[in-house]
Every structure is written in C-alpha cells, then in structure tokens.
Design a protein around this nucleic acid. Structure first.
Lengths: 287, 287
DNA sequence: TCCTGTCATACCCGGTAGGTATCACTGAGC
DNA sequence: GCTCAGTGATACCTACCGGGTATGACAGGA
C-alpha cells in the first residue's frame, strides 16, 4: 500500500539537504521538474507536508526533519544490505560465513592492540580474512551503518557506541602532548584545568558531528597535522596514553591525572549474526 | 548506480521466508513469473547468487542469508521512516517535536513505574501526548525497529537492549511464584537450583527469538495463562518482584536469592533526535 | 518596468513492472 | 515406461509511470 521506495527516500534526502530543488536535481543527475513531482507524490502518499515552499527557497517542516533523519538511517541500512550481500557473495561457503570481514580502525590508533588482535585471530582454526579499513576520526559509526565495515575499534568517550553492540578491550589513561620546550612539559603530571587554561597554547579541535566545536585552538583532522602543529609550538592536545607510540622528538608527554580514561571497544552492528564476526569478537575479548 | 529498491527487498524477503516462489507471489499479491524475473534481476545486479534452485524447492545461499537479515533490517528502517513521518505530520509545530510519542510496554509489567512516569511527564511544561502501546513478551525491539513505537520499557535480562540507547530506571530482585499448596511455598527463600530442580513443577517457558526454548515445562505466552497454570499446580515461574501486584490467592511468592536482578530500562532507537523523546527520558531518569 | 531565479504545470516518450500463456524439468504414481 | 502434478523459467504483450523538454506563475531586485 504505502511502502516508501528507496528512490523516493534518496530524492527527498537530497532536497532536504540542499534545500533547493535545482541543486538537488543536479546532484541526483536528473532534471528539476520530475524531482518536484516525485516529492509532491511522496507528500501526497504520506498525507503529510514535508517542505515549506515560500518565496526565497525551501525549508523543512517538522515531519520533514523526521523523514530526513529516519530516511538517512533507512538508506544506510539499504546500502549496508547491498554491500554486505555482495561481499558475502564472492566465495561464500554453505554456512554463509566464510567471507572477508572489514574492520574499521581510526588511522594510527591502537597499533599494538590491533596487531595483537590480528595475530591472535589469524591463529584461530577457521579464521576469516580480515581487511583493515583505516578511517577518519569519528567515521567508524558511519562505516558500520552503511555496510562499508562489519566491525570497528572505537574509543569512548571520543566515539559514541550508540546503536552498536560492543565489547570492552582496553582502558588507558590520557596524556597531554606538548611542545618539548613549553614550561608545562617539565611537569610530572597535569590536570585538565592546567592544560586547557594556557592562553598561548590552545587545545586543538577535532571534527565532531560534522563540524568543529567552537574554541580558540586550530582545527585538525588527522594526527600528522596535529603532530606538526604541536612541534611548531602552536597547540597542545590531550590524547590516550598509546599516542606515545607516534610522538616526535619535539614533543613532550605529561600524564593528565583527572582526564577521563579512554576505553577501546570492539563494536559491531547490533543485528549481526555472522559466525566469522562472532569468532573475531571471541578472540578479541580473550586478549 | 546499483541501489537496491525497497520493492526488490520486499520480494526477496518474501521468497527467502517462504522458500517457494508460488507462495511468495501469492503473499505479495502478484503472479509468479514477474517475481521470478525480479529475483533474477536482483541476483544479476548484485552479481551474486542468492538462491539455490534445485529439484524440489529453493534454499538460501550464504549471500542469501546475509541479504535476508540485512534486508529485513532495511525494510524495518524504511517502514519506521514512513510511520514516524506520518505520525509527526498531523499537527507538528515548526520545531518538529510537538507530536505524539508511542511508548511500548509489555502488558501488565511495571504498572507502578509506568504510572509514576506518565504522571511525572504529564506535569512537565511542554509534554507531548504519550500513547501507551501494550505489547507481547519480547516484542518491544521489533516495535522500535519498525517505527510502530518510539520508546519502550524493557527488562534485562529478559529483553536485549542491543541496538538501542537506554537509561536504567529500576532494579528489583526476583521471586518464585508457586502454587500456594506446594511444599516449597512454605520456604522463606529459595535458590535457582531448588526452583528448577523440582520434577513435579517444571518451570514455564516463554517465547524467545521466535520459538520456545526446550524443556519440560508448559509453553505460555501471557501472564494470564501463566497465572492459571500456576494456580492449577502445573508449573512455577521466576519473575521480577513487581509481579506480586497481580498474584492470585492461589499463588505463593518466595524470594529467589541468587536469581539475577531484573533491571527496567527505558530504551529508544539510537539515532532518535526528537525533543519530546528527550524530555520523556529526562523525566524518567529523574524518577 | 524588466530581468532573474525559484518551483510548479503541461505534455510527450520509452523503459519496465506486471499479467497471461506456455515451456522445461523432476519426482511420484500406476 | 508413461503420465500427471508441481516446480521455476521463458516469451510476449500491455499499461503505467518515471523522466525529459518547454513553459508558466510568482516574488524580489536593479
């Protein structure tokens, strides 16, 4: 009767993101009139007004906001279905589990733990092939949701585990990474207040929810940038203890006693039922 | 390029569940040939074989199993998008949150807590309207996934919170509910081993993952049935302490000291962003 | 006033989803 | 062995509808 088609969702999400029929149509590779008509049909079929068209552009109604959120989730789930099916297709055995597993890891994080995990899992009798997919700062959730990854290493409180199943792997303290020459670098320990209260050394800002939080520090989006800016004396950062592995000679590390501990989890979509994944998780939780 | 359409997923799930093209077509209200063709196109487009057609019927390949699981999740997400959008549509304000909220509750569970929650929330300044949706034993997850509900009261370890965000509301011990005349009913306390080790009083079995766990006890699917069977002396059950509220005169309740505590949570889909929901959760966590 | 930029309408065309009729194959009877 | 029942696949046709082009309605700015 009224089941939304993937195509309609794609169209609506494009319009809702662009708030402009012409640009949305261009992005979708089609002309504007059929897009307008498709959205009208969608509104009629749902019996709900999704967009407010008045002079000078388009805005979302309350229902439109809901459909934007829920529609994105549905499109992610649909892409995930296609990707995971294709991945399982190649040379799958009869039990549906002898395939490759994609593991998303924030680039350069948890080196040691990852190495141990991969080694231990490879030694298992019926280990699947693991493809390590390096990803950005907070990208793991997106990759798990849309099926580009099957499982991820995530770090609370930096990543949110909402919507996933997870298993705790490791807890570590945090250190302040400072320019070696800075006065604070000589300290044995620091507090969060001390690190954040230095006007000449504002803390770097990481992307968060698609934007950067406000603040005086420079915006960085990978560890190489951060390392360089710290070495140049322009910024500082509070990072998990395992970041010591990639520090430069120009850096100094000082434990921050009151920083929240960083917990590394292995996380996967809650509905996963793959045997290969279960094996990897079992291996991980025994480390 | 190759985005799966909702229609294709619906068709495939029907065939994968029936394992029979004719019955699946009937269920879908269409003829068998176009269904066969649609599945073939789907397989070609995915580049993957989903079904094993040999003599005497159809069976799933590994990739088919994956698509069945992932496709169900995607279809649920799509239905949820439609339902929640429609619900938000009626008389939504400009902020997209002035709508009804559907709360799924296992019928007759947590009376008192529910009453307190509804009263407290109704007293909030900008409370939305709450529709209480009574549901079966383990149905809350399904309702949240496909959008028939926005939020639910769930009970660990009976319900799984996998895939949802949740907030802990209450912890209670468990009691053994026995026929009043039974020898064990006279005890002050019991252990799990004692309750489960009585040959003439096998524990009742609840549905779980679509079936019943094996065991000697009778299969029940609601509390009225259970109450009657206990009163008749045919079975016993281990239940949260709040079950005392609906016991009969023919029942006896004895605390089970080593039973895992039952924790009542309020749970919601992890990606929810509704203001009304946030308000309800805030109210609940302050109880 | 005209011009520009926006979304909606009118109309046409082609692809394809769906229907009917039929085939090909297998297994069970007799 | 032959037929018959039951399965999914194929062939072919039709009609709908998704998409394109051309144009309209309307508001705002010079």
């Amino acid at each position: 009767m009224d089941t939304l088609e993937t195509r309609e969702l794609r169209y609506f999400v494009a319009v809702a993101e662009e708030l402009h029929f012409g640009r949305a149509a261009e992005r979708l590779g089609m002309a504007q009139p059929p897009l307008s008509r498709a959205i009208q049909q969608l509104e009629r079929r749902l019996g709900v007004s999704l967009l407010e068209r008045d002079r000078r552009g388009v805005s979302l109604t309350g229902a439109g906001e809901v459909l934007l959120h829920e529609g994105r989730a549905a499109l992610d789930a649909t892409s995930a279905a296609a990707r995971r099916t294709r991945r399982a297709g190649g040379a799958g055995g009869p039990d549906g589990s002898r395939n490759r597993l994609v593991l998303a890891v924030k680039a350069a994080a948890a080196h040691e733990l990852l190495q141990k995990l991969l080694d231990a899992y490879a030694a298992e009798p019926d280990a699947a092939e693991i493809e390590v997919l390096p990803c950005g700062i907070n990208e793991q959730g997106e990759l798990l949701r849309d099926g580009r990854a099957d499982v991820a290493l995530m770090h609370t409180p930096y990543n949110s585990l909402a919507g996933f199943d997870s298993e705790e792997l490791m807890t570590e303290g945090q250190i302040a990474v400072l320019p070696a020459g800075h006065p604070l670098a000589a300290r044995r320990t620091l507090s969060l207040a001390e690190v954040s209260g230095v006007p000449d050394l504002p803390l770097a800002r990481w992307p968060h929810d698609g934007g950067y939080p406000p603040g005086p520090g420079p915006e960085v989006h990978n560890q190489t940038q951060l390392a360089q800016l710290i070495a140049l004396g322009r910024t500082a950062a509070v990072l998990p203890d395992s970041a010591r592995a990639w520090l430069w000679a120009e850096h100094a590390a000082v434990p921050v006693t009151d920083a929240p501990p960083v917990v590394t989890h292995i996380a996967w979509p809650a509905h996963s039922r793959s045997l290969a994944l279960a094996g990897l998780i079992r291996t991980a939780s025994r480390l």
